[in-house]
């Protein structure tokens, strides 16, 4: 349903007085390579998870998928159309069909709009003129997002709602246009633990019911493992491993995937505490990416080949891809 092919995005580095001076001497523009040639596809009714540290390009990928950034290379295919070439009615159609749920449910709601008005806005923007028709759609969306009882919520302002309720308003706003692509960017990380599962359940149910292709972005592997059908691991703007979530969590192949999983604290209670495995170092500078594998500086098992050539994704088994020189040979 949605397909990403060799997608790239780089940003020009903001020039300060001094850096402008030095770049004059070097005559080379500095660019942050946020997303560096990634490919994947999400089918209808499927949730794909994207994991990685902050700055790995997760959110940039989301913005590219929504058409809010123009890709520097590669393309995003939506129902077979390249979204960066869309214009007029086609663009309008795409905008309606690709929606987003944010991390912070308070910041993502207009404080001056009531719940009803918030969910109505996308319909007005997309020229649904008849009031009764709008009302019907809003009620249906609120029901799906479990904002019950409907009447109690309609006239409330965001500051009168709890975090979980706000996030359900965001979900209702996102699904009122019956999207085909839904992106959830850390949608539960700011919510209290006791209500997180409820929000995840709604996202899961709606994905199946409305046959959406959902992209769930998070750095929490245990969360991704529990809701996603497949998971892609991103490091320094590249996908280093991608596959069915059971495969990724239970038999990770890339050393970085392993590091991400081993770093997750487990709620198991014992007297003698085990030390968590935490790899040292930090993600590389996206302006000057190291040659070869971008993970090699933090990798315990780096060999000579890792320094010279950049590993490509290859299929280890059905639907499980990894980009590492150490795997498979």
């Amino acid at each position: 349903m949605i397909e990403v092919k060799d997608l790239q995005k780089s940003f020009a580095v903001k020039e300060t007085f001094f850096s402008a001076f030095t770049s004059l001497l070097k005559k080379k523009e500095k660019r942050i390579r946020a997303v560096n040639g990634i490919s994947f596809s999400i089918h209808a009714g499927e949730i794909m998870g994207v994991a990685g540290e902050s700055g790995c390009g997760k959110t940039t990928t989301a913005m590219l998928l929504l058409g809010l950034y123009r890709p520097s290379g590669g393309k995003v295919l939506f129902e077979g159309m390249d979204i960066s070439s869309l214009k007029g009615t086609e663009l309008r159609y795409f905008r309606r069909k690709a929606q987003l749920i944010f991390q912070d449910p308070y910041e993502s709601l207009n404080p001056r709009f009531t719940v009803y008005r918030t969910i109505e806005e996308p319909l007005i923007v997309n020229r649904l003129r008849r009031k009764s028709e709008r009302r019907e759609k809003i009620m249906k969306a609120m029901e799906k997002a479990k904002l019950m009882p409907l009447e109690a919520f309609c006239d409330k302002y965001p500051h009168e709602l709890s975090g979980g309720e706000r996030q359900r308003v965001c979900i209702a706003r996102a699904i009122v246009l019956e999207p085909v692509l839904l992106i959830a960017d850390e949608a539960t990380s700011m919510l209290d633990v006791s209500i997180r599962a409820g929000i995840l359940e709604i996202i899961k149910e709606l994905t199946e019911e409305m046959k959406m292709a959902t992209l769930y972005i998070s750095h929490d592997m245990s969360l991704l493992g529990s809701i996603c059908d497949k998971i892609g691991i991103m490091y320094a703007g590249e996908i280093v491993e991608i596959g069915r979530s059971e495969d990724i969590i239970q038999s990770p192949l890339h050393p970085y995937t392993r590091a991400l999983i081993e770093a997750v604290p487990v709620p198991e209670f014992r007297r003698a505490k085990l030390k968590l495995k935490a790899i040292a170092g930090e993600p590389p500078d996206l302006v000057n990416l190291p040659r070869g594998c971008s993970f090699r500086l933090r990798c315990e098992r780096a060999i000579k080949a890792c320094r010279t050539s950049r590993p490509k994704l290859f299929e280890v088994k059905q639907g499980h891809f990894v980009a590492c020189h150490q795997v498979g040979d």
Binding site: R96, D104, S108, L109, N110, V125, N126, R173
Partner: peptide
């Protein structure tokens, strides 16, 4: 820069609408 403006953009609102309605 607040996310609710991004939300309005995602829903397809025009610049004028974002400025004067949101």
């Amino acid at each position: 820069e607040r996310p609710f403006i991004t939300a309005a953009k995602v829903s397809g609102a025009s610049h004028l609408r974002i400025m004067y309605v949101h």
